[in-house]
Design a protein around this nucleic acid. Sequence first.
DNA 1: CTGTTAGCGCATTCAT
DNA 2: ATGAATGCGCTAACAG
Lengths: 357, 357
Amino acid sequence: MTVTLADVAARARVSPATVSRVLNGNYPVAVSTRERVLRAVDELDYVLNGPASSLAAATSDLVGILVNDIADPFFGIMAGAAQTEIGGQEGTGRAGGEKLAVVCNTGGSPERELTYLTLLQRQRAAAVVLTGGALEDPGHTAAMTAKLARLADAGTRIVLCGRPPLPGSDAVAAALAFDNRGGGRRLTEHLITLGHRRIGYVAGPVERTTTRHRLEGHRTAMAAAGLCGDAAERERLTVHGPYDRRSGYDATLELLRRKPDLTAIVAANDTVALGACAALRDQGLRIPQDISVAGFDDLPFSVDAVPALTTVRLPLFAAGARAGRLAMGKEAPPPGGIATIAAELMARDSTAPPREG
Amino acid sequence: MTVTLADVAARARVSPATVSRVLNGNYPVAVSTRERVLRAVDELDYVLNGPASSLAAATSDLVGILVNDIADPFFGIMAGAAQTEIGGQEGTGRAGGEKLAVVCNTGGSPERELTYLTLLQRQRAAAVVLTGGALEDPGHTAAMTAKLARLADAGTRIVLCGRPPLPGSDAVAAALAFDNRGGGRRLTEHLITLGHRRIGYVAGPVERTTTRHRLEGHRTAMAAAGLCGDAAERERLTVHGPYDRRSGYDATLELLRRKPDLTAIVAANDTVALGACAALRDQGLRIPQDISVAGFDDLPFSVDAVPALTTVRLPLFAAGARAGRLAMGKEAPPPGGIATIAAELMARDSTAPPREG
DNA sequence: CTGTTAGCGCATTCAT
DNA sequence: ATGAATGCGCTAACAG
């Protein structure tokens, strides 16, 4: 029923081994023979049996890209870029060699993250790219470290993109970390320079590296300006929530309740910032005249927001593409396996000097 | 080095077949035996060899979800929903049975679409979900039909989500098509009811089903109101472009150049509509006082646009989830294998009666 | 309910 | 440069 390598060999009047060799292209084969084989492949409409091939070779052409939220362009942009570098260029998929770049959506769930890694391990994936912030739970971190070690042992290349390196693990081939701290700090410095002193912060989910680093950057800037109250005050000015619009909306109302005299709100990311803007508008506040708002990431829609959103640009596409190349071994890892990706302040119209002050 | 089924069997003092049976769970095994085996699995930290398993069973647990643009939430929402239904619930991935739901980004390229299908065919994928509009090129359609037929022959279940059925093909197990025509028609009817007569249309890429259907709906409404000029006039009022912000911006400027007295602009989707809004603002036009704008899809950010965007809601999450269930065989296909998903008009603030009559 | 046997389709020695 | 032989790790009959 289904055509096999042997069928192709018979039709091309060569041995199965030869067919395998032309398909994989990593062995000298006479030009005439190769042509004959390829013709037979086309005529029979033969497609390599991946499982059989992977079993015999003990490696597969699967490359997994894990994302926390596939509906969020933050991840989509990185994943798409990585996939372009991995799957991109070559032929029709008829022959061997091409990688199958696939993205797996963990939904931010640590269990699903581990499950996907196991599933990829089961498939003997050639590489795995982990994107976005990590959960900072000791148990989960330990489990991840162990799992990644096993994957690496089995020959799977591990690349981190937008995620800080795993301390004490040599399983990771390369880690591209965003400078979330620096970006967060510069963003808040920008607000302070404008004259803001009472700044609320809508943070991301707790126990996430991204959340913590951005918040640390913010507080560093606040402290440097002598605006850092006691712990209780800091808590009052901070509300945590998921990275979505709803969270921004709700958290902003909560901040306003706690501190009606806020002159600026910094959001964990652009999506949250948009929710914050909506809440402020619904309260009759004008942006930036009555209150300033800032986001993070500089997603494509942020420049079109009204007013255009002040934010911090992360080179998501470039980072994703680089991660893809690293996963393919097409690019040498950075020194020490770790690179920090700069974050650039984009001052736009949603921030301005406070009314009075 | 790497632990195999035989190792587990030895440690649990049973035969390899028994281990296979408890792992796959589709065969009666004594409770005490099962426990012994599972303990051995844990102790040895055994992970099933996917390729070997797939080779022997002639099926794999891979399920592919193809999307045109992974950075677009339109696809992300559907893909995430589908993935939830497919990968969702069960264990740690330690044992067999769980599906590996992965999303593949074609970038809208027909070649990559076919390549991905071949790669999934090579992996003997259990199912494939194709999301979003299809390219309407005869050659590509024929190639797709043939490829899908082969996949179906090999036992891969094919589900379409947000894509019209393939005429004359019985390879597709189920097709969930959005009512793009109806949605487009109702949206334009809404504008006409408000009093608009000169309406520009920023269409999607040519030769795409989604583009064509939405445009047909628009023109049906125009014709019904006697607003449909000759072919040349219709062309003048329509500009095609990709489904992105930039296209909306540029196309809007072009439309304004051709027809400065336009009172409304309908965009191919919400992202394009946002670009259109930006262009209009840059031209000093107020929305909706000077000109109305409408989108399509009702993506999450649309309600937060300023003004809130009038659009057509598509139940992307529900449709994606249903496609996932259909791909898993957890839900019976609709009658005839085809279901049309309703599109609901969401009249918001970006549309209003035109300035003058 | 459990063990035994026989491939699944291909990559890879080793020959030639 | 090509062919023949072996085994990758597992599942699926088939016994028992």
